[in-house]
Write a protein that binds this DNA or RNA. Structure first.
Length: 917
RNA sequence: GCGGGGGUCGCCUAGCCAGGUCAAUGGCGCUGCCCUGAGGCGGCAGUCCCGUUGGGGUACGUGGGUUCAAAUCCCACCCCCCGCACCA
């Protein structure tokens, strides 16, 4: 179908207000939602995939007489739109290129993109068009965007957060983040040049008192339990260290650690600087074991990690062993006599795992990259299976895992340990600065760690329908795992926190209960934002207060307030929300948390659908790969309906979907051919008496209709599309073959009309087109789903038997080499069939028949001996002849001549014998 | 590492929850024939191996097990994908 024909239908739906949802208490309602997409670019096929699934369900429900609400809003909250605008303003070439070439933004528009709000508005307009063209049945009157540029929506977010705070779900606290010291902001994964997936971990700081001095060399480690194997302490001879007063002690740490310690709320007062080489040679006291060990030089130390002081455990740490070996190789005096001390027993290694690994991997020295791998191997083996040896005092016999915690606690107790956050691997910001960990203070958190809150969320998940079922456990796991979440930011777009206007409600937090806002969004548009006070929402959502009071407070008429309350009570809860699986651990779970926090149980979400991620030609879509296909382009190339089928039938459950252009193209052609064929068939056929084939055709529609009903209830859209489109098409083609082109007009009209309705949820435009061909004038969406199409099983049995016979004939014809001109089909005599099926015949025959029966479909199994097989074949003799391509006659076995009997006697019920001549 | 999902006949994909109707669905590709001036489109047939009467053999990541019977259930292993928090 052409794009312009599709657009005509969009206009028609709008003029008929087909998808505008009004409260109607005579009908049951269904409220479905698709997450608001972020407006920093055009929507792509990933969005189209999920949105089409939602839409199919909505339309399916509508055809079942439900009053359906499917609204849509836009997400503007957050940093990326602002960042993109900034980069554009600075003339960032790759950014310009992306906007021009991938997003296809016209030049005159692009110039204005340095204004982020302009950009968001522009994409919102474009994407609304794209969604309309895709045929989504959205009630556009209820649209909004999520920032202060939509002040009505902002008033709703203010209500939400004030209410959450009142209920005790918001707290203030501090939190470690990956921090860029140059940008002075947290650095997420996507903002990094290097170090993706690196997160803060806790490094233990261990204090080694300098002999004869009142200061401590502070070593950092991930493995405090190894203190029992310490042989020396390493410093970088060329690095600069400082003496600093921290928490009442004098610490000696790398100079570059000072800023990091300060960012982690340590009060640092630098006293003096000291060179690493001046520390070398001193003696320090290892805590807990009270052993004097020397300070030695090493060059593997990264001054940007930890304190630039490392204590040495050469038995279990490859770098330590290598550094020691390097010193001993050059005959370094201070390293003489130092030997690894084995303290951990671990399966797969002897006493000195570090030595073994170094030798196995043939590591040259401490500058060899392979030492990293050796370290990882030992770390992981010892963590999982290691046990502390007898030389570890009271910790002997403990697992490494347990000892790590206990040793640290003991050290902390005696005041000789502390903790700092650190990045285990370098992280480089996009601005090229090296990042470190900063503890942010005075952050606002959503208390997802709250056990009572979690329990309510679990209760909601347990009661909900979740499609597919596998996703349920995932939600429960996420709820367990979830911790307090910082819900406000200081940059980007959004709604200011009502009680602390320096902060903006962040993007995953302001998109959790907006579905409630949809119910009244169109009514709020009549009022000024300042009228939309907390009391209004309290009344609409909680029924709190009197309409008269709220009316005098807000200036909104009482009847209008009641109408809003009515909308909410009618539409809520959300009956289905669908998204891709990437949103399970965040957005969808937050959606649950906020609902159970704010609303009473009857308004908790009813169902969530989760689908896989969409790939294009087997690859993940990304701007850098340049393989992003926008909805606009997809529609232009394939048409909305072909695009929808290609997407909807690309995956089921949580499997990743794969979009292939070639496939979409073939669907486009099929749709066009289908419409053409139907048009032609209807104009060229005429009325006739009802035949078995006619009934068979309608039977197919009947079965498909029921199958789709069952599958759509479980959000199994792929199989439903297959049924509605492919199975129906195949049945139709098969029918034409049976009747040899002589279609029965009223039968195909019925069939096609049923078909148009069954297609409507999936390919709305095609459905309308076909619906029109059978002579209907308005819209297929005003029809009712054909739930009660008659079904005649005996006809299906007939056709199945005929098909089995035809299949056998073809198989034999393929095998025999002679060219027969005539076929006689010998059918078991009627009484005989019953006897065999009752087990009253020759043993061999019964055995063969039992085997045959196992391989029979249930459909025909029950009819053995109960239908007149011979009569059936005679009835369909024309079709059988056509398929066989030779003359065919049907006889009973008892009618076989002597020359035929040898084969004829092999006939079984539902398996006639074939004699070719 | 932790959690979730997967591995099916050249490629993609159905079936697995409720074991027999499974040599296994559909599409693409490929082969032959028809249509066409030719090509595309379309139609028909075929596409694991063997087989002159509808049969047999081998197959559903690998290796075991349960069962009269396993792609389907159980166990172990290998491999792939997706999340893992200040990011939408």
């Amino acid at each position: 179908m052409s794009n312009s024909a599709e657009e005509e239908w969009v206009k028609k739906w709008e003029s008929l207000r087909i998808f505008e949802a009004e409260v109607d208490r005579s009908k049951n309602k269904v409220f479905v939602t698709f997450p608001i997409p972020y407006m920093n670019g055009p929507l792509h096929l990933g969005h189209a995939f999920t949105a089409s699934r939602v839409d199919s369900y909505a339309k399916f429900k509508k055809l079942h007489g439900f009053n359906v609400l499917f609204p849509q809003g836009w997400h503007w909250t957050g940093q990326p739109i602002v960042s993109a605008a900034d980069r554009l303003a600075k003339g960032d070439e790759t950014m310009v290129k992306e906007f021009r070439e991938i997003d296809k933004v016209p030049e005159d528009i692009l110039e204005k993109f340095k204004d982020p709000v302009f950009m968001a508005r522009y994409y919102t307009d474009r994407n609304r068009q794209a969604m309309k063209k895709l045929g989504l049945g959205i009630d556009w009157r209820r649209e909004f965007n999520t920032t202060s540029y939509d002040p009505r929506f902002s008033s709703f977010i203010e209500w939400q957060f004030l209410t959450l705070r009142e209920k005790g779900y918001i707290t203030k606290g501090s939190h470690p983040v990956v921090w860029c010291p140059r940008d002075k902001s947290p650095v997420g994964d996507h903002d990094r040049l290097q170090g993706e997936g690196v997160y803060p971990v806790e490094f233990r700081l261990i204090f080694f008192k300098l002999k004869g001095e009142d200061s401590y060399l502070v070593a950092s480690t991930l493995r405090p339990e190894t203190i029992f194997g310490v042989t020396n302490v390493w410093v970088g001879p060329d690095l600069t260290y400082v003496k600093a007063k921290i928490n009442g002690k004098i610490w000696i740490v790398g100079k570059s650690a000072v800023e990091r310690l300060k960012d982690q709320l340590f009060e640092v007062e630098v006293v003096s600087e000291i060179q690493g080489k001046d520390l070398v040679g001193k003696e320090v006291l290892a805590p807990l074991i009270n052993k004097e060990v020397p300070v030695l030089p090493a060059n593997f130390i990264d001054p940007e990690i930890g304190t630039a002081v490392v204590y040495s455990v050469p038995a279990h740490a490859p770098y330590d062993y290598l550094a020691l070996r390097d010193l001993q190789k050059i005959g370094y005096e201070g390293a003489k006599g130092l030997k690894p001390i084995s303290i951990i027993r671990v399966e797969g290694y002897g006493d000195y795992p570090a030595v073994e690994e170094v030798e196995k991997l043939k590591i040259k020295d401490q500058n060899d990259q392979k030492a990293d791998l050796a370290t990882k191997n030992i770390y992981s083996a010892e963590f999982r299976k290691g046990v502390l040896k007898e030389n570890c005092g009271e910790f002997a016999g403990l697992s490494v895992n347990a000892a790590r915690k206990l040793v640290y606690e003991k050290l902390e107790e005696i005041g000789l340990a502390s903790t700092m956050w650190e990045l285990p691997e370098p992280v480089i910001c996009r601005c090229t600065a090296r990042c470190h960990v900063k503890i942010l203070q005075d952050q606002w958190f959503l208390k997802y760690s709250d056990e009572e809150w979690k329990e309510k969320a679990r209760e909601c998940v347990r009661a909900m329908n979740i499609f597919p079922e596998e996703a349920r456990q995932w939600f429960l796991d996420v709820i367990d795992w979830l911790n307090d979440y910082p819900c406000a930011r200081q940059s980007g777009l959004g709604t200011p926190l009502p009680w602390d206007k320096n902060w903006l409600v962040e993007t995953l937090s302001d998109s959790t209960v907006y579905m409630a806002y949809y119910t009244i969004a169109h009514r709020l548009k009549k009022y000024r934002p300042e009228q939309l006070r907390k009391e209004l929402y309290d009344y609409v959502f909680f029924g709190k207060g009197e309409p008269s009071d709220v009316s005098s407070l807000t200036g909104i008429p009482e009847d209008e307030l009641e109408a809003m309350r009515d909308e909410f009570l009618y539409w809520y809860p959300v009956d289905l929300r669908v998204s891709a699986k990437e949103l399970v651990p965040n957005h969808l779970t937050f959606f649950i948390f906020h609902h159970v926090a704010l609303f009473e149980k009857k308004f908790w979400p009813k169902a969530i659908g989760v689908n896989g991620m969409l790939r294009v030609e087997g690859e993940k879509m990304s701007k850098s790969k340049g393989n992003v296909i926008t909805i606009e382009d997809g529609i232009k190339e394939f048409g909305a309906d072909a695009l929808r089928i290609a997407l909807l039938s690309s995956s089921e459950y949580m499997d990743d979907a794969n979009f292939k252009k070639e496939y979409a193209r073939s669907i486009k052609e099929r749709i066009e051919r289908l419409i053409q064929d139907i048009r032609q068939d209807i104009s060229s056929s005429s009325e006739a008496d009802l035949s078995s084939y006619d009934i068979w055709l309608i039977n197919n529609a009947s079965k498909v209709s029921k199958d789709i009903e069952q599958n759509m209830e479980k959000m199994n859209v792929k199989i439903s599309v297959t049924q509605a489109f492919f199975i129906m098409e195949n049945a139709y083609r098969e029918y034409k073959k049976y009747v040899n082109g002589k279609l029965n007009l009223s039968v195909i009209k019925d069939f096609v009309k049923y078909w148009s309705i069954m297609l409507a949820p999936f390919v709305p435009f095609t459905a309308e087109e076909i619906y029109r061909i059978v002579g209907e004038k308005s819209s297929v969406f005003l029809e009712a789903w054909p739930s009660k199409i008659p079904y005649d099983e005996i006809v299906d049995v007939e056709i199945e038997l005929v098909n089995r016979l035809v299949g056998d004939i073809k198989e034999v014809l393929k095998l025999i080499k002679s060219k027969p001109t005539k076929l006689t089909v010998f059918v078991v005599d009627k009484g005989e069939a019953e006897k065999i099926s009752e087990g009253n015949a020759e043993k061999d025959k019964i055995n063969r028949f039992m085997k045959l029966k196992v391989s029979m479909p249930d459909l025909i199994k029950g009819y053995v001996g109960k239908v007149d097989e011979k009569e059936i074949y005679i009835k369909h003799i024309e079709y059988i002849k056509r398929q066989a391509g030779i003359h065919v006659e049907v006889k009973n076995v008892s009618e076989a001549g002597p020359d035929e009997m040898q084969r004829a006697k092999n006939a079984l019920p539902f398996k006639p014998a074939l004699v070719f001549k």
